[in-house]
Protein backbone atom coordinates (compact mmCIF):
# COMPACT_ATOMS: atom_id res chain seq x y z
CA UNK A 1 0.00 0.00 0.00
CA UNK A 2 3.03 2.23 0.50
CA UNK A 3 5.54 2.13 -2.30
CA UNK A 4 8.80 3.95 -2.90
CA UNK A 5 10.18 3.74 -6.43
CA UNK A 6 13.66 4.93 -7.31
CA UNK A 7 13.78 8.16 -5.31
CA UNK A 8 16.91 10.27 -4.82
CA UNK A 9 17.69 13.24 -2.61
CA UNK A 10 20.41 15.87 -2.36
CA UNK A 11 21.77 18.06 0.39
CA UNK A 12 23.53 20.88 -1.38
CA UNK A 13 25.64 18.99 -3.90
CA UNK A 14 25.88 15.75 -1.99
CA UNK A 15 23.68 12.87 -2.99
CA UNK A 16 22.02 11.43 0.08
CA UNK A 17 19.64 8.99 -1.55
CA UNK A 18 20.26 7.14 -4.78
CA UNK A 19 17.56 5.09 -6.47
CA UNK A 20 15.84 3.82 -3.33
CA UNK A 21 12.86 1.44 -3.86
CA UNK A 22 10.85 -0.71 -1.47
CA UNK A 23 7.27 -1.24 -0.37
CA UNK A 24 5.25 -1.83 2.78
CA UNK A 25 1.95 -3.72 2.81
CA UNK A 26 -1.03 -3.33 5.11
CA UNK A 27 -0.48 -4.99 8.47
CA UNK A 28 3.19 -5.38 7.70
CA UNK A 29 6.14 -4.07 9.70
CA UNK A 30 9.22 -3.26 7.65
CA UNK A 31 12.48 -2.23 9.28
CA UNK A 32 14.76 0.23 7.54
CA UNK A 33 18.20 -0.61 8.87
CA UNK A 34 21.54 1.10 8.50
CA UNK A 35 23.99 3.28 10.31
CA UNK A 36 23.60 6.92 11.20
CA UNK A 37 23.66 9.04 8.08
CA UNK A 38 22.96 6.07 5.80
CA UNK A 39 19.81 7.82 4.56
CA UNK A 40 17.06 6.30 6.69
CA UNK A 41 15.69 9.58 8.02
CA UNK A 42 16.02 11.23 4.64
CA UNK A 43 14.02 8.40 3.07
CA UNK A 44 11.21 9.00 5.53
CA UNK A 45 11.36 12.76 5.11
CA UNK A 46 11.19 12.36 1.36
CA UNK A 47 8.12 10.16 1.74
CA UNK A 48 6.54 12.85 3.94
CA UNK A 49 7.26 15.60 1.43
CA UNK A 50 9.77 17.34 3.70
CA UNK A 51 12.68 16.68 1.35
CA UNK A 52 12.16 16.80 -2.39
CA UNK A 53 13.22 14.08 -4.78
CA UNK A 54 14.00 14.86 -8.40
CA UNK A 55 13.49 11.31 -9.62
CA UNK A 56 11.23 8.35 -8.94
CA UNK A 57 7.88 8.26 -7.21
CA UNK A 58 6.21 7.59 -3.88
CA UNK A 59 2.73 6.10 -3.98
CA UNK A 60 0.27 5.55 -1.19
CA UNK A 61 -2.84 3.46 -1.81
CA UNK A 62 -1.99 3.54 -5.50
CA UNK A 63 -1.92 7.33 -5.65
CA UNK A 64 1.26 9.35 -6.12
CA UNK A 65 2.06 11.58 -3.16
CA UNK A 66 5.52 12.73 -4.22
CA UNK A 67 4.89 16.36 -5.07
CA UNK A 68 2.37 16.97 -2.29
CA UNK A 69 3.07 19.13 0.76
CA UNK A 70 3.46 17.33 4.10
CA UNK A 71 0.10 18.28 5.52
CA UNK A 72 -1.76 16.86 2.53
CA UNK A 73 0.22 13.62 2.75
CA UNK A 74 -0.68 13.37 6.41
CA UNK A 75 -4.34 14.05 5.64
CA UNK A 76 -4.27 11.13 3.21
CA UNK A 77 -3.48 8.81 6.11
CA UNK A 78 0.31 8.59 6.28
CA UNK A 79 1.49 9.27 9.82
CA UNK A 80 5.05 10.30 10.75
CA UNK A 81 6.77 9.96 14.12
CA UNK A 82 10.03 11.87 13.83
CA UNK A 83 13.47 11.18 15.14
CA UNK A 84 14.07 12.69 18.59
CA UNK A 85 10.31 12.81 19.24
CA UNK A 86 9.83 16.54 18.61
CA UNK A 87 7.15 16.98 21.21
CA UNK A 88 5.69 20.47 21.64
CA UNK A 89 7.29 21.06 25.00
CA UNK A 90 5.21 24.12 25.89
CA UNK A 91 1.94 22.30 25.22
CA UNK A 92 0.29 19.83 27.58
CA UNK A 93 -0.25 16.19 26.69
CA UNK A 94 -3.86 16.88 25.72
CA UNK A 95 -2.85 19.87 23.61
CA UNK A 96 -0.16 17.84 21.87
CA UNK A 97 -2.82 15.31 20.96
CA UNK A 98 -5.11 18.12 19.77
CA UNK A 99 -2.50 19.28 17.26
CA UNK A 100 -2.41 15.80 15.75
CA UNK A 101 -6.19 15.47 15.51
CA UNK A 102 -7.65 14.78 12.06
CA UNK A 103 -11.01 13.63 10.73
CA UNK A 104 -12.16 10.02 10.85
CA UNK A 105 -11.06 7.91 7.92
CA UNK A 106 -12.99 4.90 6.62
CA UNK A 107 -9.91 2.76 5.93
CA UNK A 108 -8.14 3.22 9.25
CA UNK A 109 -8.75 2.74 12.97
CA UNK A 110 -10.25 5.79 14.67
CA UNK A 111 -8.35 7.05 17.71
CA UNK A 112 -9.53 9.21 20.56
CA UNK A 113 -7.47 10.35 23.53
CA UNK A 114 -9.27 7.82 25.73
CA UNK A 115 -8.52 4.96 23.40
CA UNK A 116 -4.87 6.08 23.24
CA UNK A 117 -4.61 6.27 27.01
CA UNK A 118 -5.49 2.56 27.09
CA UNK A 119 -2.59 1.87 24.77
CA UNK A 120 -0.27 4.18 26.73
CA UNK A 121 -1.46 4.05 30.36
CA UNK A 122 1.41 6.31 31.53
CA UNK A 123 0.07 9.22 29.52
CA UNK A 124 -3.37 9.03 31.10
CA UNK A 125 -1.88 10.09 34.43
CA UNK A 126 -0.33 13.25 33.01
CA UNK A 127 -2.96 14.76 30.72
CA UNK A 128 -2.21 18.33 31.73
CA UNK A 129 1.53 18.06 32.08
CA UNK A 130 3.61 20.15 29.64
CA UNK A 131 5.54 17.97 27.20
CA UNK A 132 8.82 19.48 28.36
CA UNK A 133 8.42 17.99 31.82
CA UNK A 134 8.17 14.39 30.62
CA UNK A 135 10.93 11.81 30.45
CA UNK A 136 12.35 10.70 27.10
CA UNK A 137 10.36 7.46 27.13
CA UNK A 138 7.10 9.24 27.93
CA UNK A 139 7.76 11.76 25.19
CA UNK A 140 8.28 8.94 22.72
CA UNK A 141 4.91 7.47 23.71
CA UNK A 142 3.28 10.87 23.31
CA UNK A 143 4.90 11.38 19.95
CA UNK A 144 3.41 8.11 18.68
CA UNK A 145 0.03 8.87 20.27
CA UNK A 146 0.02 12.34 18.70
CA UNK A 147 0.54 10.87 15.24
CA UNK A 148 -2.15 8.23 15.82
CA UNK A 149 -4.64 11.06 16.51
CA UNK A 150 -4.50 11.66 12.76
CA UNK A 151 -6.00 8.17 12.24
CA UNK A 152 -3.30 6.99 9.84
CA UNK A 153 -3.50 3.78 7.85
CA UNK A 154 0.28 3.68 7.58
CA UNK A 155 2.90 5.06 9.93
CA UNK A 156 6.60 5.95 9.68
CA UNK A 157 8.57 5.56 12.92
CA UNK A 158 12.02 7.15 12.82
CA UNK A 159 14.34 5.56 15.38
CA UNK A 160 11.78 5.11 18.14
CA UNK A 161 14.22 3.28 20.43
CA UNK A 162 17.09 5.78 20.28
CA UNK A 163 18.13 7.02 23.69
CA UNK A 164 15.44 5.09 25.53
CA UNK A 165 15.82 2.64 28.38
CA UNK A 166 15.61 -1.03 27.37
CA UNK A 167 12.55 -1.58 29.55
CA UNK A 168 10.65 1.14 27.63
CA UNK A 169 11.91 -0.21 24.32
CA UNK A 170 10.17 -3.48 25.19
CA UNK A 171 6.92 -1.58 25.71
CA UNK A 172 7.45 0.08 22.37
CA UNK A 173 7.74 -3.31 20.72
CA UNK A 174 4.42 -4.26 22.27
CA UNK A 175 2.81 -1.08 20.94
CA UNK A 176 4.06 -1.74 17.43
CA UNK A 177 2.62 -5.25 17.52
CA UNK A 178 -0.73 -3.75 18.57
CA UNK A 179 -0.67 -1.34 15.62
CA UNK A 180 0.15 -4.22 13.30
CA UNK A 181 -2.88 -6.07 14.65
CA UNK A 182 -5.02 -3.05 13.84
CA UNK A 183 -3.94 -3.44 10.22
CA UNK A 184 -1.54 -0.49 9.99
CA UNK A 185 1.41 -0.58 7.68
CA UNK A 186 4.51 0.28 9.72
CA UNK A 187 7.87 1.46 8.42
CA UNK A 188 10.44 1.55 11.16
CA UNK A 189 13.93 2.96 10.96
CA UNK A 190 16.29 1.41 13.45
CA UNK A 191 19.86 0.91 14.52
CA UNK A 192 18.98 -1.47 17.31
CA UNK A 193 18.92 -4.77 15.45
CA UNK A 194 17.62 -6.67 18.47
CA UNK A 195 14.57 -4.48 18.60
CA UNK A 196 14.04 -4.56 14.84
CA UNK A 197 14.18 -8.36 14.81
CA UNK A 198 11.59 -8.49 17.56
CA UNK A 199 8.88 -6.57 15.71
CA UNK A 200 9.46 -6.58 11.98
CA UNK A 201 8.47 -8.92 9.16
CA UNK A 202 10.95 -7.69 6.61
CA UNK A 203 14.15 -5.69 6.63
CA UNK A 204 15.59 -3.20 4.16
CA UNK A 205 19.23 -2.27 4.62
CA UNK A 206 20.40 1.17 3.49
CA UNK A 207 24.03 2.15 3.19
CA UNK A 208 25.36 5.42 1.77
CA UNK A 209 21.97 6.26 0.32
CA UNK A 210 21.38 3.03 -1.58
CA UNK A 211 19.60 -0.16 -0.74
CA UNK A 212 22.00 -3.05 -0.18
CA UNK A 213 19.64 -5.77 0.92
CA UNK A 214 15.95 -6.58 1.16
CA UNK A 215 14.43 -9.71 2.63
CA UNK A 216 12.66 -11.24 5.58
CA UNK A 217 14.18 -10.83 8.99
CA UNK A 218 14.60 -14.60 9.15
CA UNK A 219 16.67 -14.59 5.96
CA UNK A 220 18.75 -11.79 7.33
CA UNK A 221 19.53 -13.80 10.43
CA UNK A 222 20.62 -16.70 8.28
CA UNK A 223 22.83 -14.45 6.19
CA UNK A 224 25.71 -13.44 8.44
CA UNK A 225 27.74 -11.89 5.61
CA UNK A 226 25.16 -9.21 4.96
CA UNK A 227 24.61 -8.70 8.63
CA UNK A 228 28.27 -8.25 9.34
CA UNK A 229 28.90 -6.05 6.33
CA UNK A 230 26.26 -3.43 7.03
CA UNK A 231 25.10 -3.97 10.56
CA UNK A 232 27.81 -6.04 12.16
CA UNK A 233 26.45 -6.74 15.57
Amino acid sequence: MLEVQGINAFYGQAKILDDVSFSVGAGEVVALLGRNGAGKSTTMKTMMGMVSSTKGDVTFNGETIKKLPSHVICQKGLGYVPEERRIFTELTVMENLEVGKQDKRPDAPFWTPDKLFKLFPNLAEMRNRPGGQMSGGEQQMLSIARTLMGNPSAILLDEPSEGIAPVIVEQMAFTIMELKKEGLAVLLSEQNLHFAKLVSDRAVIVEKGSIRYQGTVKELEENPEIRDAYLAV
Binding site: A165, V167, F195, L198, V233
Partner: peptide, 11 residues
Protein backbone atom coordinates in the same frame (compact mmCIF):
# COMPACT_ATOMS: atom_id res chain seq x y z
CA UNK B 1 13.11 -4.62 36.88
CA UNK B 2 13.70 -0.87 36.68
CA UNK B 3 15.98 -0.73 33.69
CA UNK B 4 17.15 -3.70 31.72
CA UNK B 5 13.82 -5.48 31.31
CA UNK B 6 13.75 -9.02 29.90
CA UNK B 7 16.94 -8.56 27.90
CA UNK B 8 15.30 -8.92 24.51
CA UNK B 9 16.59 -5.62 23.15
CA UNK B 10 20.33 -6.06 23.74
CA UNK B 11 22.89 -8.85 23.70
Amino acid sequence: EVYLGGGSTFD
